[in-house]
Simulated scan of single mutants.
Amino acid sequence: MPRFHRIAVGQYEEFRQPGAIKAAAAELFSTLTFVFAGQGSGMAFSKITKGGPTSPPGLVAAALAHGFGLFVAVSVGANISGGHVNPAVTFGAAIGGNLTLVRAVLYIIAQLLGSTVACILLAFSTGGLTTTAFALSGVSVWSAFVFEIVMTFGLVYTVYATALDPKKGDIGIIAPIAIGLIVGANILAGGAFTGASMNPAVSFGPALVSWDWTNHWVYWAGPLVGGGLAGVVYQLIFISHTHEPLPTGDY
């Protein structure tokens, strides 16, 4: 019967290893780039049109900005850290044994820091415009929770299929664009209801800088549950346990 024999806690010394530090730095800069583009697009749209980001043109603009931004962020980080750019992706990858829990914590800290710095830079460079926190619109907290679970499940499932599966072969080449496209599609599907975060780091930076924590737990619990479920499902059903462990460079 399959089991998660590859989950590893890791060693505290990983926090001081040059490779781990470089990988965390890559996550920081990739997340900073992604959040600056995504959050900045919403701020620019609101300023130019005087309209809300959940209007039809606003959703399309957000989907394009986040999809393109994530494609670039994943691409530039892939060879160093794996290009997670998302605590939910990192958590889902750790569930499948693709990195240690210690390194996962290091990645998540870097991702949160990158998002926060991006929002601070946006607030400064736009003359004090608000980096709006994610908010619910017309749905209950529990409906939003399910929305975030399902959308993040699709995202992390895509990451597994195109980037983490040892059998991925040539399809790994399209991993960054596939990941960007699923995020853009999910924003079109759920952006009008929850803002379609799918990423605790993307939610954390704006919430911290604007100091608006309303229903913030949804944007942690939903993505982490969805990412963890995707890791469990893909690892149990689709990844053969006869494979050799993934090389460190693929983490």
Rank of each mutant, 00 (worst) to 15 (best):
F34H: 10
G114E: 09
R103M: 08
G42H: 09
I108M: 08
A61T: 14
T31N: 13
S125T: 15
L113R: 00
P53K: 03
A20F: 03
P53H: 12
A110W: 01
S30H: 00
I21L: 10
L112T: 10
F124Q: 10
I95M: 11
G38E: 09
G97H: 04
G58Q: 03
A61P: 06
R16C: 05
M43R: 09
V85L: 15
L121E: 00
F124N: 00
A65D: 12
G40Y: 01
I108Q: 01
L64Q: 05
L32M: 05
R103E: 08
A88S: 14
I21S: 04
N86D: 06
T31V: 11
G92P: 11
P53Y: 11
L64F: 15
F36L: 11
G82F: 01
T90D: 02
L64N: 13
L64K: 11
S46Y: 14
T33E: 14
A93Q: 03
L122E: 11
C119F: 02
F29C: 04
T31M: 03
V117L: 15
F91L: 14
N98R: 13
T31A: 12
I95T: 15
P56G: 12
A94I: 07
I95G: 02
Q17V: 07
A25R: 09
L64I: 12
G58R: 00
Q39P: 03
L59I: 06
G97W: 00
L106Y: 05
I120Y: 12
I120E: 15
N98P: 09
S46W: 14
S41G: 13
A118Q: 06
G96D: 01
L121Y: 10
I80H: 13
T116S: 10
S125V: 07
G38H: 06
S75A: 08
G96Q: 10
N79D: 12
K47Q: 12
A104F: 00
Y107E: 12
V117S: 14
A26H: 00
F45S: 06
F71N: 07
L32D: 00
K22N: 15
G67E: 09
G82W: 00
G51R: 08
E27D: 03
N86H: 13
G52M: 07
A73G: 08
G52A: 10
F71P: 08
V35A: 08
G83M: 03
I120W: 12
A94D: 10
T90E: 08
P53Q: 01
L59S: 05
L121D: 11
L70D: 00
L113Q: 00
G40D: 07
G92M: 04
A37V: 05
G96W: 01
L70H: 01
G69S: 00
L113A: 06
F71W: 14
G77C: 08
A20M: 06
A23P: 15
P56H: 07
S75H: 10
G67V: 04
Q111M: 05
V60N: 09
R103Q: 12
L59M: 10
G52L: 01
V85S: 05
I120K: 04
C119I: 07
H84C: 11
N86R: 07
P56I: 05
I95Y: 04
G40A: 05
R16V: 10
H84P: 07
L113D: 00
Y12V: 15
P56V: 09
T54K: 02
T33R: 09
F71Q: 02
G96M: 03
P57V: 07
V35L: 12
G77L: 08
A88W: 04
Q39G: 10
G51S: 15
V60W: 09
Q39F: 02
L101Y: 11
